[in-house]
């Protein structure tokens, strides 16, 4: 008897907790594909538009990869080291006294990292691989960096500090993988354990071929949920 009491108390507590959580999450507005994330206040208001924007609009058209160099080399994009900012800015006298640059040099002189806030923060159980996406779109399909980065990060060259402009939910990932970018696996072997979950499909044989399989997106849960 005792035991059942204890279990039911535990379960009741648990459901109470979950329903509170669920109720709260309902209140957040439903995201559309392009709905914006909140404005995030950064220690230094970094003007992406000034650095990457079109020359016609006062930008310098610097390639995304110049600063975000890790994105094409690693799963995580990281944040450029402070040294990178200083590398250029110590030679740019014209803005040396601007408040943001002064603040930048304060961090540099103290040899302290700038405590940037994460803008595109996926949950910890999701592993997104930057390198893989850049390889596919830029190296294999020769699309420009700004376009490719923009698939997920939006039109950063128009922003000052970055702001999330895509939903970045699993359904949103699937919408792209399903629609446009079928993944071909060679050799006729099945790829992994086929996630039927959500809208990722198991590989299908293509017409007229017995050994080439076509799939839409990652076929294993663990590709993203390691």
């Amino acid at each position: 008897m005792h035991r059942f009491l204890r279990i039911s108390v535990l379960l009741t507590g648990l459901f109470a907790a979950v329903s509170v959580y669920a109720a709260e999450s309902l209140q957040t507005t439903q995201m559309t594909e392009d709905s914006l994330g909140p404005l995030v206040e950064q220690p230094i208001e970094f003007p992406h538009n000034r650095h990457a924007g079109d020359a016609g609009k006062g930008g310098m058209e610097i390639n995304c990869m110049y600063c975000h160099t890790y994105a094409r080399r690693s799963a995580v994009a990281g944040i450029p080291p402070l040294q990178k900012c200083i590398g250029c800015h110590q030679g740019i006298e014209s803005v040396r006294e601007a408040p943001r640059i002064k603040k930048l040099f304060e961090y540099w002189d103290a040899k302290k990292a700038v405590p940037w806030k994460k803008v595109h923060d996926l949950p910890d159980f999701v592993r997104f691989n930057h390198e893989r996406h850049i390889k596919r779109f830029v190296e294999q399909q020769n699309r420009p960096f700004q376009e490719v980065c923009g698939y997920c990060h939006g039109d950063v060259k128009e922003m000052t500090v970055a702001r999330r402009s895509k939903a970045l939910s699993m359904g949103w990932c699937a919408s792209c993988h399903q629609k446009d970018h079928a993944v071909v696996a060679e050799g006729g072997t099945q790829i992994g354990s086929q996630a039927y979950w959500y809208t990722f499909y198991k590989p299908e044989a293509t017409d007229g071929s017995t050994d080439v399989l076509k799939a839409k997106g990652p076929n294993d849960c663990w590709q993203c949920h390691k």
């Binding site: 957040t28 994330g37 995030v40 080291p81 402070l82 961090y107 405590p115």
Partner: peptide
């Protein structure tokens, strides 16, 4: 979308 947290965590880069 509830578990995407914007602007909550700090991401610390290297100085050098």
């Amino acid at each position: 979308n509830t578990s995407i947290e914007d602007g909550k965590e700090t991401v610390v880069s290297y100085v050098e």
